[in-house]
Nucleic acid binder design. Structure first.
Length: 808
RNA sequence: GUGGGCAUGGUGGAAUGGCAGACACAAAGGACUUAAAAUCCUUCGCUUCGGCAUGCGGGUUCGACUCCCGCUGCCCGCACCA
C-alpha cells in the first residue's frame, strides 16, 4: 500500500495545537478534594517586568515541570501553580517616567508573561493563578500583618536604618548586599527613621532548628545558618570605677576574663554621653563618633583595614574577676547593633583585640597556654589550658567556660547568653506600589489596627508616584485618603502612609495557591491540610536570605497561631544555576547578550528550547548559552520524529535492545529525580542512536521513549503518541516500569589490566567467577605477552568491570 | 580575612575508588544534490607510537578525575558579630 509521506516535524503548529487542547480540557488543574496522594511542586512566581520572560525562568520552570508531569504519570494529584509577584519598584519607576498607573502597566506585563509561559507548555494550573496586587489577594497579606501586630511581632520604632539614596527608601538588612542596595546597586546610608519592624529575631532559634527537619540543599542551610549567626556566651557586668553604674558586655569567651586588659565601646554607645563630663578628652571622642557616623556602612568596612579608636580618658572599668581597673576605649570596630555595643578586650586571644592592642600599645596578658602571643593572638579553643587565671588555672577552655559562667551567675555579675546576628526586619517602604500597612494613627488611642472586616485597605489613586526627599511615602500627599477616623474612638485620625516591602506578598503565596478563590479565609483549613507543605520548591540562591527566610518566618508564625497545619512551609529546596550569555558573561541589556525564550522558540520551538535548557549542563551550575548547542537539541527531536517512519515489525522490545531499554527507563527516571537532566537526556540520545544503528525501533520501543521524553518535550510527544495511536493523551499515561531481570545481559565485555594498565578486553558471562575468568585469560596470548617472564601473584576481579593482573 | 564550591579536549560537559573524555557543539573529509540547505557516513586530547594526559606537588591503594595532605587560580556566601 502506498504510504503517504509524513510531514517533517513542525513545532509551531504542534505546540499551538496541544497548548490549546490542554487549556480547553484543563488537564493540569489540581483536584480538590481527592483520594489520590498529592504532590505540590513550586517554582518562584515571577515579577512581571516590562522586559518579559528571561531564559532563566524556563530553566527552573521546566525542571519542576518535568517532576510535575512525571508525578501525574505516577498517579499523583499534582499542584503545580503559577502567579505573579507584581508589587515592586520597576513598575513604579516606569509609572513615574511615563505617567501611567503602575496597575495598568503591571496588568499589561502579566498578560505578556502569561502568554510567554503558555508558549513554553508548562503544566501550570492557571485556574489558581494569583496576583499579589489584586485586592482580593493583598487583603490577606494585610490580614497576616494584623495578626503579627496583635501578637506584638510588628512594631514601630525610631532607629537608624539602611536607606537607599537612589530608591529613596528604607531597606531591610537582607536587602543590603555588599554595602549597596540589592535592587539598584545604589549607595546605602544610615538614616534614623521611624519604621515598621517585624520581630523575626523572636524566631531566630526556630528558624535555625527548623533547618534540621527539612531537605534543603546544604548550601542553602549553611547560608541561612550563617545569616542567623547564633553564638553562645555570657553577658558580664563591669562596674565603672567610682560609680554605681555597670558596663555590660557580651563575650563568647568568658573563660578569658582574667586576660581582659581594656574595654571597647561602640562610638554610638550611650556611656559616652552619660559620662561626658568625666571624660577628659570628650571633644576628641565626640569628633571620632561624628566621623564614624558620617561614613556609610560600606565605607566603614572598606576603611577598616586598620584599627582606629580613642580612649575615654578618666573613665575606667573594673574587671569583676580580679578587681583590676582597665581603660575604656571607643572604636568603630565595635558595633552598636550587636550584643551590648561594648566588649571586653582580650588581646592575647582575639585577633581584632590583638591588632588594636598592638596599634595603641596596650598590655597583652596570656591566659590560655599553647600559642605564642608575642607573634599573634592564640584563639584555639580545643587544646588550650588556662593560666594566669586564679581558680581557672589548669582547666581546658570548655571546662573553664562552664566554671566561670556558674561563678558569674552565683555572684550576679553575669549571665549565660545566646546572641544572634539576625536583625529585626525593617518592613516599611516609603513608596507607592505596595500593600498599604493597615493601621491608623489616632491622637488618643495611638496605633490602631484597621478592623479585619474593613480589609483590604485599598491603595488609592494618586497623581504622582514620585518618592519624596524627606522620606515620606507618596501616599502622604493623599489627604482624602490619609484623613480618616479612629476605628476605636471615632476621632479624626490618620492612616499609615508607608507600604509593605516587595517581600510581603511572596511570604505566603504558596498558601493561597491551595485555595485561591476563598473569600472567607486566606485558604480553608481542609485545603491547607491536604496540600501543605510544599513537597519540592526550586528557586534561585539569591533568595536564600531574603524570600526563603522571610517566608519561613511568616509560616512558622502562622503555625504558632494555629492557622497552618505544619511548621515548615517547604519540605525540599533545590536551586538552579544561572544562564550566562553566549560570551560567558552575565546576560544584561547593557552587555547586549540577552537571549529571550521568544527568540529561541521562534528558532527551534518550545520543546527544543526546554530540552536544551535541561541538556546544557549540570542543573545547579552557571552555564553560558550556546545557540548552536540549542540547535543540536532541535536536531535530536527531528530524529525522534523520524523514528515513526522506521517502525519495525514485532511486539515488545528487540532482543538485542531489551537490556538497554530497561537500563534507560531506570537511568532516566533516577536522573530526573536527582535533577540530573543533562545525563537523562544524554541517555535518551544514546537510545535513539542505537535505534538508528539497528535500522529502526519497534512500536513498543518508541512508546517507551515517548513516555520517558514527554516530561521534557511534551508537545512533540503528545503528537507522536496520537499519530502512533497509543491512546488518548499523555498527561496520565502510566510512567514506564523497568525490570531488573531484563537488564541482565548474557555476555559482557570487561577490561583486562596488567599492573593497572588496560591491555585488552575479554567477553564473559556476567556471573563468571574469578577462577573462570583467570582460566579464560590464560588462553589469551595477546594479554600474556604483557605479563612476559613475570609471575602472576594476584588477580583482582571486579565483577562486571575489569580484572587486574598483579605480576612480579 | 573566613566558610563553602569548582578546576577534565577547540567548546558545554560525562564518569557508586575500576576501561577518562559518555552525550552534544564546533571543525575537517566524504555521500546525496545542477547548487545550497537538510540528511546520512567517517575523523576528531597529545604523541617521536614506547607512552603521556583530568590546575600544580606529594601521599594512600592492585587501581585515583574521584580519598588524604600541601600549593595555585577562579567563583559564591559572610565580612571587625566580640
Amino acid at each position: 500500500m502506498y504510504q503517504e509521506q509524513r510531514p517533517a516535524y513542525q513545532p509551531e503548529s504542534i505546540e499551538k495545537k496541544w497548548q490549546k487542547k490542554w487549556a480547553e480540557e484543563g488537564v493540569f488543574n489540581a483536584q480538590f478534594p481527592s483520594d489520590k496522594p498529592k504532590f505540590y511542586g513550586l517554582i518562584e512566581f515571577p515579577y512581571p517586568s516590562g522586559a518579559g520572560l528571561h531564559v532563566g525562568h524556563p530553566r527552573s520552570n521546566t525542571a519542576m515541570d518535568i517532576i510535575a508531569r512525571k508525578r501525574r504519570m505516577e498517579g499523583y494529584n499534582v499542584l503545580y501553580p503559577i502567579g505573579f509577584d507584581a508589587f515592586g519598584l520597576p513598575a513604579e519607576n516606569y509609572a513615574i517616567k511615563n505617567h501611567v498607573h503602575p496597575a495598568v502597566i503591571t496588568q499589561k506585563n502579566i498578560v505578556h508573561f502569561r502568554e510567554q509561559l503558555q508558549k513554553l507548555g508548562f503544566s501550570f494550573d492557571y485556574s489558581r493563578e494569583v496576583d499579589t496586587t489584586d485586592p482580593k489577594y493583598y487583603r490577606w497579606t494585610q490580614w497576616i500583618f494584623l495578626q503579627l501586630f496583635k501578637q506584638g511581632l510588628a512594631y514601630k520604632a525610631e532607629m537608624p536604618i539602611n536607606w537607599c539614596v537612589s530608591c529613596k527608601c528604607g531597606l531591610a538588612n537582607e536587602e543590603v548586599v555588599g554595602g549597596v542596595c540589592e535592587r539598584c546597586g545604589g549607595e546605602v546610608v544610615r538614616r534614623v527613621k521611624s519604621q515598621w519592624m517585624l520581630r523575626i529575631t523572636d524566631y531566630a532559634q526556630k528558624l535555625l532548628d527548623g533547618l534540621d527537619t527539612v531537605d534543603f540543599i546544604e548550601k542553602v542551610k549553611v547560608q541561612q545558618r550563617n545569616w542567623i549567626g547564633r553564638s553562645e556566651g555570657a553577658e558580664v557586668d563591669f562596674r565603672i570605677a567610682d560609680t554605681n553604674d555597670t558596663l555590660r558586655v557580651f563575650t563568647t569567651r568568658p573563660d578569658t576574663l582574667f586576660g581582659a586588659t581594656y574595654m571597647v565601646v561602640s562610638p554610638e554607645h550611650p556611656l559616652i554621653d552619660q559620662y561626658a563630663s568625666r571624660i577628659a578628652n570628650v571633644s576628641e571622642v565626640i569628633a571620632y563618633r561624628e566621623a564614624a557616623t558620617r561614613k556609610s556602612d560600606f565605607e566603614r568596612t572598606e576603611l577598616n583595614k586598620d584599627k582606629t579608636g580613642v580612649e575615654l580618658k578618666g573613665l575606667y572599668a573594673v574587671d569583676p574577676v580580679n578587681g583590676k581597673e582597665i581603660p575604656i576605649w571607643a572604636s568603630d570596630y565595635v558595633l552598636m547593633s550587636y550584643g551590648t555595643g561594648a566588649i571586653m578586650a582580650v588581646p592575647a586571644h582575639d585577633a581584632r583585640d590583638y591588632e588594636f592592642a598592638k596599634t595603641f600599645d596596650l598590655p597583652i596578658i596570656e591566659v590560655i597556654s599553647g600559642g605564642d602571643i608575642t607573634q599573634e593572638a592564640y584563639t584555639d579553643v580545643q587544646d588550650g589550658v588556662l593560666v594566669n587565671s586564679d581558680f581557672l588555672n589548669g582547666m581546658r577552655v570548655a571546662e573553664a567556660k562552664k566554671t566561670i559562667i556558674a561563678w558569674l551567675e552565683e555572684l550576679e555579675l553575669g549571665v549565660k547568653k545566646v546572641n544572634f546576628k539576625l536583625r529585626d526586619w525593617v518592613f516599611s517602604r516609603q513608596r507607592y506600589w505596595g500593600e498599604p500597612i493597615p493601621v491608623v494613627h489616632c491622637p488618643h488611642c495611638g496605633v490602631v489596627p484597621v478592623p479585619e472586616n474593613q480589609l483590604p485597605v485599598l491603595l488609592p489613586n494618586v497623581e504622582n508616584y514620585e518618592p519624596t526627599d524627606n522620606g515620606e511615602s507618596p501616599l502622604a500627599k493623599m489627604t482624602d485618603w490619609v484623613n480618616t477616623v479612629c476605628p476605636v474612638c471615632g476621632a479624626p485620625a490618620k492612616r499609615e502612609t508607608d507600604t509593605m516591602p516587595q517581600w510581603a506578598g511572596s511570604s505566603w503565596y504558596f498558601l493561597r495557591y491551595c485555595d485561591p478563590h476563598n473569600d472567607e479565609a486566606f485558604a480553608s483549613p481542609e485545603a491547607l491540610q491536604y496540600w501543605m507543605n510544599v513537597d519540592w520548591y526550586n528557586g534561585g540562591m539569591e533568595h536564600t536570605t531574603l524570600h526563603l527566610l522571610y517566608s519561613r518566618f511568616w509560616h512558622q508564625f502562622l503555625y504558632d497561631i494555629g492557622v497552618v497545619p505544619c511548621p515548615e512551609p517547604y519540605q525540599k529546596r533545590t536551586s538552579h544555576g544561572m544562564i550566562l550569555g553566549e560570551n560567558g558573561e552575565k546576560m544584561s541589556k547593557s552587555r547586549g547578550n540577552v537571549i529571550t525564550p521568544d527568540d529561541c522558540i521562534a528558532d527551534i520551538g518550545a520543546d527544543a528550547t526546554r530540552l536544551y535548557e535541561m541538556f546544557m549542563g549540570a542543573f545547579d551550575q552557571a552555564i553560558p548559552w550556546s545557540t548552536n548547542g540549542a540547535r543540536g537539541c532541535r536536531r535530536f527531536l527531528d530524529r525522534v520524529w523520524r523514528l515513526m517512519d522506521t517502525i519495525k515489525e514485532g511486539e515488545g522490545y528487540q532482543r538485542a535492545l531489551t537490556p538497554l531499554m530497561h537500563e534507560t527507563i531506570k537511568k532516566v527516571g533516577d536522573d530526573y529525580e536527582a535533577m540530573k537532566y543533562n545525563t537523562a537526556i544524554a541517555t535518551m540520545m544514546t537510545l535513539v542512536n542505537e535505534f538508528s544503528a539497528a535500522g529502526g525501533c519497534t512500536r513498543d520501543e518508541l512508546k517507551t521513549l515517548i513516555l520517558l521524553l514527554s516530561p521534557v518535550a511534551p508537545h512533540i510527544c503528545e503528537e507522536m503518541w496520537e499519530q502512533m495511536g497509543f491512546g488518548s493523551g499523555l498527561t496520565f499515561a502510566p510512567w514506564p516500569i523497568y525490570d531488573e531481570e531484563a537488564m541482565k545481559r548474557s555476555e559482557i565485555e570487561i577490561a583486562v589490566q596488567v599492573m593497572g594498565k588496560v591491555r585488552g578486553h575479554i567477553t564473559i558471562h556476567p556471573d563468571m567467577t574469578d577462577e573462570q575468568a583467570q582460566k579464560e585469560l590464560l588462553t589469551r596470548a595477546d594479554i600474556l605477552a604483557f605479563v612476559g617472564e613475570r609471575k602472576l601473584v594476584k588477580l583482582i576481579f571486579v565483577p562486571g568491570r575489569l580484572c587486574n593482573l598483579i605480576v612480579r
